[in-house]
Design a protein around this nucleic acid. Sequence first.
DNA 1: CATTGGCACTCGCGTACGGGGAGTGCTACC
DNA 2: GGTAGCACTCCCCGTACGCGAGTGCCAATG
Lengths: 340, 340
Amino acid sequence: MSEDRRLDVLRAIVEDYVATKEPVGSRALVERHALGVSPATIRNDMAALEEGGYIAQPHTSAGRVPTDKGYRLFVDQLSTVKPLSSPERRAIGTFLETAQDLDDVVDRAVRLIAQLTQQVAVVQYPSLRRSALRHVELVPVGTRHLLVVLITDTGRVEQRTLELVADLDESVVARLRTRLNVSAAGRRLSELPVALGELAEGFAPADQHLVNAVVAVVEETLAQESEERVVLAGTANLARVGSTDVRSIGPVLEALEEQVVLLRLFSEMAEDHAAVAVRIGRETQHDGLVETSFVTTGYGDEGGGSVARIGSIGPLRMDYPGTMSAVRAVARYLTRILAQ
Amino acid sequence: MSEDRRLDVLRAIVEDYVATKEPVGSRALVERHALGVSPATIRNDMAALEEGGYIAQPHTSAGRVPTDKGYRLFVDQLSTVKPLSSPERRAIGTFLETAQDLDDVVDRAVRLIAQLTQQVAVVQYPSLRRSALRHVELVPVGTRHLLVVLITDTGRVEQRTLELVADLDESVVARLRTRLNVSAAGRRLSELPVALGELAEGFAPADQHLVNAVVAVVEETLAQESEERVVLAGTANLARVGSTDVRSIGPVLEALEEQVVLLRLFSEMAEDHAAVAVRIGRETQHDGLVETSFVTTGYGDEGGGSVARIGSIGPLRMDYPGTMSAVRAVARYLTRILAQ
DNA sequence: CATTGGCACTCGCGTACGGGGAGTGCTACC
DNA sequence: GGTAGCACTCCCCGTACGCGAGTGCCAATG
């Protein structure tokens, strides 16, 4: 019994099952693929694959269906990259390039992935922690409130209102603004504390409180991982006929609303050294997502690590090669556009 | 045949149907409600109500179900306000008050409504057009780019990057910033053009280009209605068992992803003079929503018209009184918090 | 004239039954 | 190792049937 053919059989089963959404039997397999052997031989291979846990049958005497483990092997070894057509590539480029601002770019990217994969698309906003500060702006509001606005090099804007114990002195605010920007601009979070620590020295004791409060807000905001946001699109694709069991979309929608779940998955998948990371079924480590797979990749990297991630969530029975290349293509364009 | 009793019967049918999710028959009606007459009498009333188009039977010889028209009458005339329990009210207050910034407030409000109504909640971001400017900030980025940041009185922040034809002069930017804020702060969009028109006069001819570009960006941003955003929560409630036909959630999800659809509905319902506006089934004027109802109310109003709207979308067979009071309660707290 | 009890009628729904078909595992053979 | 044949298993689907809920109508009644 040839080992190679067994893998071919697994690939054929996955491809047929993805295409037809129905358990695939030995006869159908030899008819649709040039395997050069008879159904009986395939049956022997199938028995071995089932023994190994790569496929299973829904009921006795039905066709075979890939298991999580089968999909995993398929993704790791068998799938060949499926490049997008050149019109598709051009469409992605122009669609993203005509965006107005960061929100718009992210919004378009997520819709694009939903459209291309016909699944649920997820985009993580550029992370504050990994991006650098471009500018800090201080805006007095009334006499006792100060609005702190942070602008990152990815174009993201974050704001906090600060309540003060003493009335504001405009000249102190102006000086603080200048010094803040000199010290902090262009620095990443990890480099900030040192730079900001010495900031208070140049100010009168009476103003120390203000300076410290502002510095605290800046650091806190940048450190606040909970501020990370994800944006969804294409949830309606969950309800398309022929998708996963229609009843099972409830738990999936619940999981998708829990930003925490998605953020945890994103950060866990960032560890993955592969260009495109894939989590299949139980690998997602979340009950609501056991019947789905999650394909993600990083974007916004500048030589080093990526700033955030985008991805697509679909049924176990998804078109893995297609989804992976669509996600990667959009990520590349996104990276290029954010670099401007 | 008493006209009053007929309305009582309709109310009873709506209440029972909402509670049991099953067509209600004449016998069940007299058992569950103290109507003081026999099933046969109820049957006569039912025949009249059916004649009038307020109820219908799914199949011959099944119980009756309210029609859109029936729900409409119920909402307009029959439903009594259902006040929230005082622990509920307190929970709303504290939950919203502990929010950090505008994004957080909106996020909490939408989750709250989803939780209270067990339906899909929708919140429209405070509209730029109707809110007033609190502050304009100009931030040079490099020598030829200027970041324009607008802050509204509802705490919303909007930004645009401007590309210039000449190098920036810091002192000109500072003067422009000062004058912009003097002229524009506190003004609504409708009052802006006049105030900004005279702004360029105080500047040297060489700087006119810069001034005009900034003014154009400010006006354009405030005028840009497409920037209106809506935020959703509780979509998983669509898939709860016992909700509308599980198959019909596809079109609903599609409609919810089209921000345009929701924005159109919001703006149309803003015309409604009622405290809480309701659109039932076909009244939504959208194919995907024919099997749902939409309950909305305005928030953020300061004596005058409201700034934006919040609402809840659920099956035709929703708890109208409960939904209406939940939506209104959250809107009130939201208004109070934004006023700070 | 509104109300009521009685009664025949209509359907939807759940259950049971049975044939057809697809697919398998096993065994004997090349 | 690969192949053909064959008995077996089980799902699926169409049909039939009885039960129950609910209706519409009619004649009787206060």
